[in-house]
């Protein structure tokens, strides 16, 4: 079927979604937070006296270390989800495949987030 819509109608499309600036903003805010968190986690691990199981568990059981590690787990998967969504929007042109890809990324990132949170809580509350 020939598309007889005017070029202007096609350019306007379905109009603006109206909420894209939120995605942009939270991606930047989470990136900002990740700068501090990544530096903190790298230095913390690098400065551990020994790299064995007991030392790492003891380190994670300190309340501050536990809280910051939780933040790191949640924010890194959230930030990854936002970034991967942008990549899918860029390169997947089929609408149904794009929707499937974005849903897959979202479900996977929330699952990984929950798994990470569960692991940190399990260790910090003593079950190892």
């Amino acid at each position: 079927m020939k598309d007889l819509r005017s070029p202007l109608a096609k350019a306007k499309g379905l109009g603006a979604s109206g909420d894209a600036s939120h995605h942009f903003w939270v991606q930047r805010v989470s990136a900002l937070a990740m700068i501090g968190l990544v530096i903190w986690i790298c230095f913390s691990i690098a400065f551990l006296p020994e790299a064995n199981y007991a030392t790492v568990v003891a380190w994670l059981q300190s309340p501050l270390n536990g809280i910051i590690t939780l933040l790191f787990v949640i924010l890194s998967f959230y930030h990854a989800q936002l970034g991967l969504q942008v990549i899918i929007e860029d390169y997947v042109s089929s609408h149904s495949k794009r929707l499937f890809g974005i849903l897959f990324i979202k479900f996977l990132s929330y699952f990984m987030m929950a798994a990470g949170v569960y692991a940190v809580i399990k260790i910090t509350l003593g079950g190892h």
Partner: peptide
């Protein structure tokens, strides 16, 4: 600005 607040119209710019 309302008409540009869209993941494709504006935010494809990287």
């Amino acid at each position: 600005l309302d008409e540009l607040d869209d993941p494709f119209k504006l935010y494809r710019c990287h």
